[in-house]
């Protein structure tokens, strides 16, 4: 699967952009949190596409945001 870049993303319809990002993010998140991957991906997809692209390129950023999302998720479910 070729890497997703900003140009490729911008050429996709707006609705499809989130889908493309989600399809890339989900397996990465699933590796760390198999049970919460769908929810976490859903939360992260509400962020800007620019930030999501950055997270795909930077595992540190992704992990930081995933940790944040889990904290929010747990607070919400409590």
């Amino acid at each position: 699967q070729e890497p997703l870049d900003a140009t490729m993303l911008a050429s996709a319809p707006l609705m499809d952009q989130k889908q493309l990002l989600g399809e890339r993010l989900y397996p990465l998140i699933q590796a760390y949190h198999p049970n919460l991957a769908g929810k976490i991906t859903g939360m992260l997809l509400e962020m800007d596409n620019t930030e999501l692209l950055h997270m795909l390129e930077s595992p540190e950023s992704l992990h930081a945001k995933v940790d944040e999302a889990i904290a929010v998720l747990k607070a919400h479910q409590a």
């Binding site: 707006l14 609705m15 989130k18 989600g22 399809e23 989900y26 769908g38 859903g42 997809l45 509400e46």
Partner: peptide
């Protein structure tokens, strides 16, 4: 009250409908 359906869940291969305003 909190929306119990939040956050919207992403499923691979299923069209994403999480965002209301796009």
């Amino acid at each position: 009250g909190n929306n119990i359906n939040w956050p919207p869940e992403f499923c691979p291969g299923v069209p994403w409908k999480g965002l209301q305003n796009i």
